Computed example of a mutant assay.
Amino acid sequence: MNECEYCHIQFEQQKLVLENEHCLFLIANEPEIEGAGIIIPREHRETVFDLTEAEWAATYELLQKAKAYIEENYRPEGFNVGWNCGHVGGQHVFHSHLHVIPRYADEPYAGRGIRYWFKSKENRRS
Rank of each mutant, 00 (worst) to 15 (best):
E55A: 00
C7S: 01
K67G: 00
V48S: 09
Y116G: 07
E12F: 01
K15N: 10
A68N: 08
N20K: 12
A105Q: 13
Q13K: 13
E12T: 13
Q64V: 09
E43P: 04
A66S: 13
L63Q: 10
N73Y: 06
I114A: 04
R115H: 06
C85H: 00
C23N: 04
G35S: 08
I40D: 00
E21W: 03
A54E: 15
G86P: 02
S96L: 02
G78D: 08
E61N: 10
W83G: 01
L51I: 08
E122C: 00
G35I: 05
T47R: 09
E122S: 14
E43L: 14
F118K: 12
S120W: 06
A36Q: 15
R75F: 07
R112Y: 11
P102K: 08
N2L: 09
V100R: 12
G78K: 05
Y6M: 11
G90Q: 08
A54R: 12
T52S: 15
E122V: 14
I38F: 02
K119Q: 15
D106N: 15
G111D: 10
Y109P: 00
R75V: 06
R125C: 12
N2K: 14
H22Y: 03
Q14V: 10
R42W: 06
K119W: 12
C23P: 02
F79P: 08
E77L: 03
N29M: 07
V93S: 04
G86C: 02
I70Q: 05
G89R: 00
Y69C: 07
R42V: 07
R75N: 12
N80S: 05
N20Q: 13
F11R: 10
R45C: 12
Q13E: 14
V17L: 13
I38Y: 01
F25L: 11
H22V: 00
Y6L: 13
E46S: 05
G37W: 07
A105N: 10
H95G: 06
L63N: 05
Y116D: 14
K121R: 14
P108R: 09
V48M: 11
D50L: 01
E71P: 01
P102S: 09
H87C: 03
Y109R: 15
A66G: 04
D106W: 07
Y116R: 05
A58Y: 01
Y60H: 11
G78R: 03
C4I: 07
I101Q: 09
A58S: 15
L26G: 03
E46Q: 12
M1I: 10
C4T: 06
G82M: 04
F79C: 08
W56M: 12
L51E: 08
R125K: 15
Q91P: 05
H22T: 01
E19A: 10
R112L: 12
Y116M: 04
L62I: 09
N20T: 14
G90P: 07
A36P: 04
K119M: 15
Y6I: 03
N84R: 13
H99W: 11
E71F: 00
Q13L: 09
N29H: 09
T47P: 02
N80P: 02
Q91I: 04
R112V: 03
E72T: 13
L63A: 13
I40C: 00
Q64F: 01
K15H: 09
Q64T: 08
A66Y: 00
H99K: 11
K67F: 00
Q14K: 13
R75Q: 15
P31Y: 03
T59A: 06
G111Q: 10
G89K: 02
E32A: 11
L63S: 13
R112P: 01
R75P: 00
G35C: 07
T59V: 04
P76C: 08
A110R: 09
